[in-house]
Write a protein that binds this DNA or RNA. Structure first.
Lengths: 243, 243
DNA sequence: CGGACCATTGACCATAGTCAACCGCCGTGG
DNA sequence: CCACGGCGGTTGACTATGGTCAATGGTCCG
């Protein structure tokens, strides 16, 4: 089992049980590694796809492109995520997928996935569960952008990112690389650049966390969680990280 | 094949191909019919479920409950939808599900679904696709509530509802029953009651559509679509309705 | 007829968007 | 090595949008 298969197995094990046979099945999956530069699109809105990407390194984002050119970022993806599992059974992309900074992905043909799903339905169910968790994250984003104050929205966003990263072992001490600019944060959280900036200042004042130069630092997890009304149960992660 | 099985088959056929054997498989699914009153919860946030509901009549909604008691409605479901297919592989509800008015559902045990999925993977894939379309609807809701004006938001919401209903043959001429109050519309579209009211007036002025007393009337589909920047491709419906 | 509930409207106010200027860092090229 | 330019972040002034609150109206039902 190479690193790529291991990455997928680790991710699925965050919420699903896999037998030895399931893992053997996963080992047979073929893929192609692809490097991405900052801001590079992996797939564009309207494209048709025959492969899904497994994130190996860096951060990817889904986004909608509006008629007026504005972007709406929808979700962010870290090592182990399979962002376009969403597109397994859907021909035409209704959103784009881009790298926030340098990133690396394993491109897995849909035919490979389908072969494994037929051979070992459990793997299919685990990936299905993965897509359902994605759905839960989308739902939470609706609520976040619709029903929380700017400060709470920002705090919740950082909570989710940090929690997911921590569950996957991607944090260093109390910090996490978040290669997102303020402008993009605004296009994620439905705020203008100026408002993002002011909300960040407010956040800094609470001493709960800080975001500066692409690095998120969490000083007081409980306080941050409180600010963002963050309840991680929607992430359905079985192996919960410690704080 | 009774009406319930037929309802499910029709829905899946909107986007997936089913063989005669698949349909025979679906016929074997056991279920229990349940009636719901206005505003009655089918499932509450935090509940654990062992069954999924297929909507037979009326309209159901998913919603988040905030710590301050406010609701955020996430999506609406019409005849043929299986709203909590989302919860097939997830134990604990991260949102609630309620009836907007009198409604009827078929409650299908997860064990029944899993049995059929194992016997005929194609059926599983069709239901999976159904959940992925749900995801696309969530994504669009993020964008709608985050990046469109109040008028556009309202128009887009009505477009989606009308389009989906029309694809399922649930519209009467150019009208559709939408048993949602203005308050609830606000809790769906991230607007206050007053703003919803004003946006509705604006909408009326355009002569594109009207919403009054729980009935949506579309006078000028093209204009409404335009107002809401509505592009139905994210719904991934193969058999497109005519306007 | 009275009350409940929902919709409507107006006045006022708070929040956040827009715009523009400025800063600071970094990389490039003279 | 320093000057320059560009990008991204910071800040302030003004403005617009939409939230809040309160009063009014309409309709349905008891």
């Amino acid at each position: 089992m190479d690193n790529v298969h291991q990455t997928l197995v680790n991710k699925l094990k965050e919420h699903s049980k896999l037998t030895a046979d399931d893992m053997t099945g996963i080992e047979t999956i073929n893929y192609a590694v692809r490097h991405l530069g900052p801001n590079e699109d992996l797939i564009r809105q309207g494209d048709t796809t025959k492969a899904s990407a497994l994130v190996l390194h860096g951060m990817l984002a889904r986004y909608h492109l509006m008629p007026n050119g504005r972007r709406q970022y929808l979700s962010y993806h870290l090592k182990g995520d399979v962002p376009d599992a969403q597109m397994l059974f859907i021909e035409k992309m209704d959103h784009g997928l881009c790298a926030m900074d340098h990133a690396m992905v394993a491109s897995i043909p849909h035919s490979e996935l389908m072969r494994v799903f037929h051979a070992r339905p459990t793997i299919g169910f685990a990936v299905w569960r993965e897509t359902l968790i994605d759905s839960a994250i989308f739902r939470e984003a609706i609520t976040n952008n619709s029903a929380r104050s700017t400060l709470a929205r920002l705090a919740h966003f950082f909570c989710e990112l940090f929690y997911r990263a921590k569950a996957s072992g991607l944090t260093r001490r109390n910090t996490l690389d978040v290669p997102i600019g303020l402008n993009q944060l605004g296009e994620t959280l439905a705020m203008s650049l100026a408002t993002v900036n002011r909300a960040l200042l407010n956040l800094r004042e609470t001493n709960a966390a800080n975001f500066k130069g692409g690095e998120l630092t969490v000083f007081d997890w409980a306080a941050l969680q409180d600010l963002g009304e963050f309840d991680p149960s929607y992430l359905h992660i079985v192996r919960k990280p410690r704080f």
